[in-house]
Amino acid sequence: MTAPPDSPGRLDDAVLIEQSRHRPESFATLYDRHFGAIYRYIAARIGPQAADDLAAETFLVAFRKRDGFDPARGEVRRWLYGIATNLLAGHRRSETRRLEALARVPVEHPAEGEHADRVVARVTAAATKRRLATELGRLADGDRDVLLLVAYGDLGYEEIAQALDIPTGTVGSRLNRVRRKLRAALDDITAESGGSDG
């Protein structure tokens, strides 16, 4: 029942859902296939400890709603990301708290004797972390959802639109806004000097 993902004769996700209507335990195969990816997405947003619970809950909710899954509206994967994102909406404060904490984590600093070009790269990367954490905290909730679905779910426009139940055009405009904001936040720090020749 728990065939490894790439074994021959692998059943399609949607078929498994269909099957689970009569044989509920078939749903465990979907769990085995997708739990890792859903967990990584949730852990990135609210931290691994809280993710333990919420990732498992995502599959419970999916299981309860399996009768409502419509294969015409995209694959199982994006459906699971949609459920996870809905559950995460109840944890905005945890996410904000985590980003606040990440904005406090000390940045890396140039090592002695490092080549100047690498120092510039490093300093920029170091500054990036704090600024990025702050900027992610400032994004509108819907914009952050779209960005993190791209970063972690590797979903396309259409899939994100289906997962979040919003128009495809809205996905595009949210991503445009996110891109502008990330550029503004990340590309305005210039390292003047540092390292061995500073």
Partner: peptide
Amino acid sequence: LTAVRDLLGSHEPSPDTVAAGRARLLAEA
């Protein structure tokens, strides 16, 4: 996107977490 992933990390669930979640699902089923 890489910077976002570097910042937020790529956390793998522990075997215990995977097992506990699976047990919850099977209990529900």
